[in-house]
Structures are given as C-alpha cells and as structure tokens.
Design a protein around this nucleic acid. Sequence first.
DNA 1: CGATGACTTGACACCAATCAACTGAGGTGG
DNA 2: CCACCTCAGTTGATTGGTGTCAAGTCATCG
Lengths: 228, 228
Amino acid sequence: MAGAADRLGCADCAVRDRAVCAVLSMQERDELAAIGQQRTLRAGETLFEAGDESIACLTVIEGMLKLSRIDAEGTERLVGLVSASDFLGRLFATEVDVSASALTDCQLCVFPRMGFERIMSDRPLLTQQILARTMASLSASRDLVELIGRRSARGKLVGFLLMLAEGQCEGSVAENMVIDLPLGRADMAGLLGITVETLSRQFTALENDGWIERRGTGAVVIKSRDHA
Amino acid sequence: MAGAADRLGCADCAVRDRAVCAVLSMQERDELAAIGQQRTLRAGETLFEAGDESIACLTVIEGMLKLSRIDAEGTERLVGLVSASDFLGRLFATEVDVSASALTDCQLCVFPRMGFERIMSDRPLLTQQILARTMASLSASRDLVELIGRRSARGKLVGFLLMLAEGQCEGSVAENMVIDLPLGRADMAGLLGITVETLSRQFTALENDGWIERRGTGAVVIKSRDHA
DNA sequence: CGATGACTTGACACCAATCAACTGAGGTGG
DNA sequence: CCACCTCAGTTGATTGGTGTCAAGTCATCG
C-alpha cells in the first residue's frame, strides 16, 4: 500500500455528514477514530488487489476509485466505482474479491477490518448504516449489469454518461450540464465491455449528432435529454 | 401477489441451517416466525415488480427466482438470480428496484419489511448475518458484471455455465457433471445481453467442439474443464 | 526538441443482430 | 386418437456493428 498516513481529524472532515460515521455519537466516533488513519492516494495508485487479504475497510473522503478484476480473456474489467463518502471494504471475509485503484487523487479514512468489525458488533446503528450502504451498492451494481448488458455501444455510452451525470448533480439531469469524466478511455471501455476504439467512435458520433459536446477528453456537455 | 400462504413451520424447514435465521435462538426464531408466512409461487409467477412499494422481504426455501428490469431499449434484462436459502428484499427503502419472478416452482418464507426491520434492530446477530449475505450478493453481482462485459458470446455462455455449475455443486466443478438450466433460452439471453439466436448457436457450437453435451434443453453436461 | 502516452481516425474482417423458416414438444378440441 | 395450434428452440441467409490492426494527431514531459 502506498501513500501518506496521518491521524484522523474528524472535526473538519469533508464528508462527516454523509459518510457512515455520521450516525455515531461524538464519543463513538472518537472510538472509531482511535483505530483509523487518514491516507492519501495519488491517481493511478493501487490500494489493494483481488485476492489480497481483507485487512482494511475505509471511507472515501475525496476522489474516486475503480474496482476491477482481470477477466478470463486477460483484460481488466471494471466492476464498480467508488466515490466520496462511500464505504469500501469486504467485511466478514478473509480475502477481497476485487482490486481497488485511485482514478483521481484520493483522501481516505482507513480502518483495520477486525477492529472495525469489533466496534460495529456493539454499535447496531453503525451496522445498520453499513447494511443500508451495502444494499445501495448492490442496487448500483445492478444498474451496471443492466447498462453493460445493452447491445449497442452507443446505448452503453449514453447510459453511462447519464449515470455519471446523476451522480454529479443532486436531483435531475439538466441540459447543457458539464460532466467530468474521472476515467480515461481505457477504463471506460473496460467498464462498458467495449474497445477504446469503438468508445472513441461513439463519442464522436454522439457529438456529431448533437447529443454531447466534448470539453477536452476529460469532460462533456450533455446538450439534450432524450437519446433515442 | 399470487400463490398460497400458510403459517410457518420452521421445525422441518429445508434451509433452516443455511438461511439467515440459522443464527437465531429458538425463541428469536419463534418471534420471527410469528410475523412470517410461508408462500408458494409457481414457475412464471411474479412476486413483485420494479417500482412497487417495498413491503416484504423473504427467504427462499426452495426454487429459483430471477431479478429483472426493463431496460432503455424496452427489453427485459436480468440483473440477478436468487436461489434456495438466499435472502431477498430491499430493506431501508420504500421502493424495490427490480422485479422478481419465479423461474421454477418456489417455496418462500415471507416477512413484512417493517416488522422484519424492527426485529432486526435489536438482534445484532441477525443484522450482521443479513449484512454478510448482502455483501455476498454484491460480490455475486460483480461476478455478473465481469461476465456480461465479456466481448464474445461464447465467453459469456461458458462463463455462465461455469457459474451455474459452481452454484450447483459444493466445491469444485467436476468433469462430466450434469448442470441443469433453471432458465429458458430467452431468460439466459436476457441475462447475458445477447439474442436467443446467438445463444442457441453458441450452444450448438460448444457441443460440436465437445465442451458440452445437451440433455434436452434444460440441462447440459460439462465435458471439459478448460475453455480456451 | 524528441519521446512518450492518450486519444482519434481509417480500413477491413468477423461476429452477432435481424428477419425468416423450420423442428419438435405440449396442449386443446374435434 | 388424431389434427391442429402454440410456443420454445434451432437453423439459415443477410446485414450491420464492433473488434482488430494500423496509422495519425495531440498534449505532456524530460
């Protein structure tokens, strides 16, 4: 594991109201803080790999990570994204089943898994909160299944852009909204199950048709809401 | 909701040792049983639809269900499978995000969501158990993302058959093992994101290449382990 | 300034979607 | 009991979309 580690400073935490620890009392949070450490991760750095021992769980304070595996064909397949205020970690298991790497620079709040489970075991509200998050992650994963199962590359990209848009604006997706793409083309292709070339072609096709407008390679503007 | 409903008989329940309630004491289980009902569901019947109010959660005693949605293209996309001893239900949410229908005749143990959550709130072990299950479901969903993201139809089918095989035998997949397919061709295609025609062609191709042998349309024998 | 890497574009082959016809099993009704 | 219907599954011919290989552009960095 790479990156700097520091003691926790919950008082000025950017996600203190949205993360799982928000349900804890001050005292309970101190207890959790005592076993946790803050870490930074630079874009591209890997936090853990599929098959590693499950020793840690964490809250993302800032940035975005990708969850991936190497599939039977030998190519990296993304199986999920993790954003600020999300919780990440495989509790009650000895191994993690995915790799996690930073797409952007990240700030994390890391806890040893065993210690976290111990604290959780007599904090029902925390357990319940983690459960609610996990159910939400499951729902998101099913969104992804539905998205990737689409038959046309265009449909996949459109769906993905809308999914990103919904994640970035609270509420509904506005027209002329700027979405930034925290993933490079290779990661996007790996997520959607297509090649970078077709992905690139679909970007230009969508632009030619007036659905989107590219802002460099890291952002797009959604020009229209309907995507028949 | 269709199907017959009866009082619970936990004593002779087929999944009493594997379902979430296995962690409960006799007394706790009685408490749960008091709010639960046993139901049967015939193959093809729908339990609930995406968007319905989330009023119930359940344990599958026998049979298999599919979780599905209607995607942007208007076709049914399967997003998950639920087998015997699995727990199903969207806790802490007012709406369900998927439809659930029986692939085979099913026997279910159904609880009102609110009542279940109430009992859960002072049974930490139960909550923990549900959490562990949900994490396992999340992992399974990611398996599915990886599977469906594969580029060749053949790879998808092979991966799916192996996934089914692993679910049906405890331990590793043996050669010459008979796998039964609880899904029809249309559902399988809807799960893998391909058409029934290509699916059918892949079945015959795999058979011609000697990987599998069809036993009617509802079962296959895996003749070989490696699938390059 | 050249090198590197990410992205785009082009040409082509191939695989999968589409439309259509055929087979076989199960069910109904005469 | 058999004719007929229906539906799931298979197979065929064709088209279009996507993968592949290759080259080209652009920005960043040493």
